[in-house]
Design a binder for these strands. Structure first.
Lengths: 247, 247
DNA sequence: GAAACTATTTGACCGTTGGTCAAAATAAAG
DNA sequence: CTTTATTTTGACCAACGGTCAAATAGTTTC
């Protein structure tokens, strides 16, 4: 919750603009080549500054990549919050979050590539504390949105509250979402599972978990196709691009 | 399905023994330090050979790590096949697989660390083709065991077969399992979700998905605590170590 | 048992890359 | 214009993955 910012000087604004330039190019390189297949020299060339200047913004290559990840994560949190404004049943609102996940995966395809590295302890050691906290903050925003919906679902009696806590339910949905995204990128599994549209698989698995949680109305008790049409129309008009597997 | 092997000479046996020695130490280093924080020189020192000798076994550091991962994956496939021999309802047998997952996570804790890297394209490029195929083979073994149980469940009418294919159901279970393992290692999420025992969370989420798939008998329709006791007794006597969160 | 030959092991060496810092360039102040 | 403060630069360093000619160990021949 940022208060009144001290007026940024021209220098500060230039610094900020350059940081975003760096992040943009780093993001592109991450997407095109992954983490290893480019170096700081190449990035410096791309942004038309020298290597030393890069290190005025970031303490290490890992710190830089974490900043890219956090910028993406902020977009996800923004999408989540936008999604949560949808008017409807709690399970319908959860469904909008599912759409947000897919929109995010399409908008920030480099994120899942980076997310892998975020699990490695050595990665975090090399990142600065400020960036670590920024990442945690955006992560918490995403968690909070989904958790709120589930708390509300329980309060309204749309989800049973006797078998598990709201946090357990949130965790289940987060897990299945991340796992589905990861697995649907695995070429071998895609063939074995006969996956044609990764996004469809992710949302299918989310539905399974929601049903498993007893989140009313269950999949076959409601016309979710109608809900989906409303979601596309009201919240994610661009979703048609990824909603149906390209023919 | 290995046929009659040509008799290995003494040299071949020594070569094999050394390879296992290398893998053992590499596995330990991976667990203790991750991927980055050790180098081939250190590994060479640990196994008391020189760096050049390591490169007679593996084409690159990545190739070596992939070999470690595949060795672990073989253990998982072994556990899965052992688990699938359990006599009982299909959902009970799926539950044994869930135990196998946890047993594996405890036995091969370095695997999830490595699995992250396996998603990176640049990683696979540096590994040899033979190791790639070996890894795919062990992965397919794991998939097949679970898939067979689900096919059988549908054939017996213990799982509905109208809403999805056996492969979709298998994919959902695989996704939630991997996702849960990953997420339950995230320190921030552990706090937010209030996770005390990662293994318990994984199995809980698997239960949710099984229920969501309509896999009879559902969680509340059957005394799965009794099943669990049988599983521990008959298949995983060591499971008590991780089954309950340590006090 | 020595010599000749083969197979294996070794570690000095190379190229690349993340990261540093003194010097150069630029901007600001006097 | 001169001096001072700030920013940018790229040569440089150390670390690491990977290579290969030389050394060592092992085997065969006479």
């Amino acid at each position: 919750m940022p208060g009144i910012q001290p007026t940024p000087t021209r220098k500060e604004r230039e610094f900020q603009a350059r940081e975003e330039l760096i992040l943009t190019h780093a993001r592109r390189l991450l997407l095109e080549k992954g983490f290893q297949a480019w170096n700081m020299e190449q990035l410096a060339e791309a942004v038309e500054y020298s290597k030393g200047t890069l290190y005025q913004h970031f303490t290490s290559k890992e710190d830089l990549v974490l900043a890219v990840a956090t910028a993406s994560l902020r977009q996800r949190a923004d999408l989540f919050e936008k999604a949560s404004n949808f008017k409807g049943l709690t399970r319908e609102r959860c469904r909008v979050i599912g759409f947000a996940c897919c929109e995010f995966a399409v908008t920030c395809p480099e994120y899942f590539h980076v997310e892998m590295m975020l699990k490695s302890a050595s990665f975090w050691e090399k990142a600065s504390d400020a960036r670590r906290q920024a990442h945690a903050f955006q992560g918490a925003r995403c968690w909070r949105v989904l958790n709120h919906i589930i708390v509300e679902a329980m309060a309204l009696g749309e989800m049973p509250r006797t078998h598990f806590t709201p946090e357990q339910a949130t965790f289940a949905l987060v897990s299945v979402t991340v796992g589905s995204h990861l697995m649907s990128q695995e070429p071998q599994l895609k063939v074995q599972a006969g996956i044609t549209s990764p996004m469809l698989s992710v949302r299918f698995n989310q539905d399974i978990v929601c049903d498993g949680l007893g989140w009313k109305p269950l999949l076959h008790e409601h016309d979710y196709a109608a809900t989906d049409r409303r979601i596309v129309k009201e919240v994610f008009p661009n979703a048609t691009a990824w909603l149906y597997p390209d023919t």
